[in-house]
Amino acid sequence: MRPYYLPREFTHALAVVVYVPPSANADAACDVLLSAVSRLQTQHPDALLLISGDFNHASPSSSLPKFTQYVTCHTRDNKTLDLFYANTKEAYHSLPLPPLGRADHNLVHLLPVYKTLVHRQPAVTRTVKKWSEEAEEALKDCFNTTLWDVFSDAHGEDIDSLTHCLTDYINFCVENTVPTRTVRSFSNSKPWITPDIKALLKEKRRAFVSGNKEELKSVQRELRRMIRKGKDCYRRKMEHQLQQNNICGVWKGLKTISGFKEPKSQPVGDQGWANDLNLFFNRFDQASAPPLAQSPLLQPPSQSLPPVHWLLLCPLPPPPHDPQFTPT
């Protein structure tokens, strides 16, 4: 299904209707469903996948761990036989309704509560350099007319000071020569989306509101052509980075395509916590070391120091004295 309005993070919607007879093998039914769903996800990784039907005694929750089950009310007597799965979280809220006609199953009203990605993650505004042949020629002229000996004479043999001065001067020339523009990056925009594609999307919306079907078809054809062109340009860009051994750029592009996010770094202690660690591990090198009982690390574990870390930092007991061993 490809409705007119669909959140941009989904390419289209796939609906899977399931019926498991009461006499069927539940494990075999879950295996068949998993095989079909895996094939669909491989073919359409960015699609919204919806699974609904009468599952009876089968429960595919363990087979589909990445899916969320949204039916929380009873659908027949005091049992929940009709289930609804989706491959996105916090998408629906279920409410029970009376049966339709003489049906023995209740109706389930699924209210959409999904919050689109563009609303969950605000747009990022950043400033980028607009490089062109004219800007490069102007920057070359700026560097050609620069008296570089002035920098070396002013700083002498201080290589660090000379490096900082030259770097600041080059950045100053770039800021005054290369024009900049402010762009807004939306979280749901694909990496191959260009300003031309965004303009066609607005034109498609305007043609739909006006009711001109011929113009809408024409804009839709042009939009598909521009999307194919944008994807092809992005593919050639990735291939060029790979040929130039630009592994950093290739990895950044792969993370953008796959939606990979860096894991959040674990919180670290403050400066006092670091000083306590230094005091504990360097206590044998100090002439007048404080008693071990006064060390904060030997006190019972607090909120800033987990119990496991506290046990690892506790000193080991001294070895038992052996009368046959005489140290030299």
Results as ranks from 00 to 15, higher is better:
residue 319 P to D: 11
residue 188 N to D: 02
residue 286 Q to N: 15
residue 185 S to P: 07
residue 249 G to E: 00
residue 213 K to W: 01
residue 286 Q to H: 13
residue 261 K to Y: 09
residue 188 N to V: 06
residue 214 E to G: 05
residue 209 V to M: 05
residue 315 P to N: 00
residue 226 M to A: 12
residue 211 G to V: 04
residue 210 S to F: 10
residue 276 D to R: 06
residue 297 L to N: 02
residue 213 K to Y: 14
residue 299 Q to P: 04
residue 228 R to M: 09
residue 256 T to R: 14
residue 212 N to M: 12
residue 187 S to P: 01
residue 202 K to G: 11
residue 318 P to A: 09
residue 180 T to F: 08
residue 189 S to H: 04
residue 286 Q to E: 15
residue 260 F to R: 12
residue 268 V to F: 13
residue 224 R to A: 09
residue 212 N to I: 02
residue 320 P to H: 03
residue 185 S to D: 05
residue 194 T to K: 00
residue 263 P to C: 09
residue 216 L to T: 04
residue 251 W to C: 10
residue 184 R to M: 05
residue 249 G to P: 01
residue 206 R to F: 08
residue 209 V to K: 12
residue 280 F to M: 14
residue 181 R to V: 06
residue 308 V to G: 02
residue 303 Q to C: 14
residue 193 I to W: 00
residue 220 Q to V: 10
residue 221 R to G: 07
residue 234 Y to F: 10
residue 281 F to V: 10
residue 207 A to V: 01
residue 220 Q to I: 08
residue 314 C to V: 12
residue 262 E to I: 11
residue 282 N to W: 10
residue 258 S to A: 11
residue 266 Q to P: 02
residue 294 Q to F: 15
residue 176 N to R: 12
residue 315 P to C: 03
residue 237 K to G: 02
residue 178 V to M: 00
residue 303 Q to E: 10
residue 244 Q to C: 09
residue 273 W to M: 14
residue 273 W to E: 03
residue 245 N to Y: 12
residue 212 N to L: 04
residue 182 T to D: 03
residue 295 S to H: 07
residue 211 G to K: 01
residue 208 F to E: 11
residue 216 L to I: 00
residue 320 P to M: 03
residue 196 D to Y: 11
residue 246 N to T: 07
residue 216 L to F: 07
residue 198 K to Q: 07
residue 192 W to V: 03
residue 302 S to E: 13
residue 258 S to M: 14
residue 199 A to Q: 14
residue 201 L to M: 03
residue 203 E to C: 05
residue 242 L to Q: 14
residue 270 D to L: 01
residue 320 P to W: 05
residue 240 H to N: 15
residue 304 S to P: 00
residue 310 W to G: 07
residue 194 T to Y: 02
residue 268 V to H: 13
residue 319 P to E: 07
residue 229 K to V: 03
residue 188 N to M: 12
residue 218 S to Y: 00
residue 303 Q to W: 11
residue 312 L to C: 15
residue 292 L to H: 14
residue 205 R to G: 02
residue 279 L to Q: 01
residue 286 Q to F: 12
residue 184 R to G: 07
residue 295 S to Q: 06
residue 305 L to R: 11
residue 265 S to D: 12
residue 249 G to L: 09
residue 243 Q to K: 07
residue 268 V to S: 15
residue 206 R to A: 08
residue 231 K to F: 05
residue 295 S to Y: 03
residue 189 S to T: 06
residue 245 N to T: 08
residue 264 K to T: 03
residue 213 K to V: 15
residue 183 V to T: 01
residue 312 L to W: 12
residue 291 P to Q: 08
residue 309 H to E: 13
residue 320 P to T: 03
